[in-house]
Design a protein around this nucleic acid. Sequence first.
DNA 1: ATTATAGGTCACCATTTGGTGTCATGTCAA
DNA 2: TTGACATGACACCAAATGGTGACCTATAAT
Lengths: 109, 109
Amino acid sequence: MSENNPLRDVFDAIADPTRRRLIHLLSQAEEIPLHELTEQFSMGRTAVSKHLTILKEAGLVLDRKVGRETRFRLNAAPLREVQDWIAFYSKFWSTNMLRLNQLLEEEEE
Amino acid sequence: MSENNPLRDVFDAIADPTRRRLIHLLSQAEEIPLHELTEQFSMGRTAVSKHLTILKEAGLVLDRKVGRETRFRLNAAPLREVQDWIAFYSKFWSTNMLRLNQLLEEEEE
DNA sequence: ATTATAGGTCACCATTTGGTGTCATGTCAA
DNA sequence: TTGACATGACACCAAATGGTGACCTATAAT
């Protein structure tokens, strides 16, 4: 039974573009140290570190210290909650549904 | 060619729990006026109205005036962007992928 | 005609957010 | 052992966020 007590809402964690980009970077390697992640952005190390902390709080990222560096790794599992939430609404944007709505609107008037 | 110039990031719009609840409420009726939506929350009308404005800016909600009331309706289409984003990462949480990661970790050490 | 209802708009406020720079510490390299 | 590198931990700051209450206008109901 892994930790399942997110201090931070996943929806909140992925709301920021920088954090989404971090997630993407981490999806393309096993592990990436902070300084290497920082290179990819125009902001300072402290800011990137803060974003990673938020991702950690949401359970989206794991870290481990190796020598003097801290390496981060993606844990995509919590994104499942978002997918489940979205899935419910997918029926509202299917083309058939759009057509149906049009018909209903016409009737209404 | 419908308006496709969202002033507001969809990820941002759905980050707030109140707004997600609004989306859910709107998914269960064709149209709902502001005062009726407000009933469902413990906050004031002004706050709910602000949330709806944000949803409008993200294109997730449409409104139309009928008599003295303003009725809101869901437009789920922009959620597609979120689904597409998520879909890319779904491969990282499949059970097979988890097993593979375990194996890779064992090898590494 | 008068009153009650619905809602837009605005000023205001506390808290959170997303950055910064600085300092102290641990680790690697020469 | 000395210096460079990687990071954590702070203090700090401006702007955005999420709420409030007051006021005004338009519409509906009596």
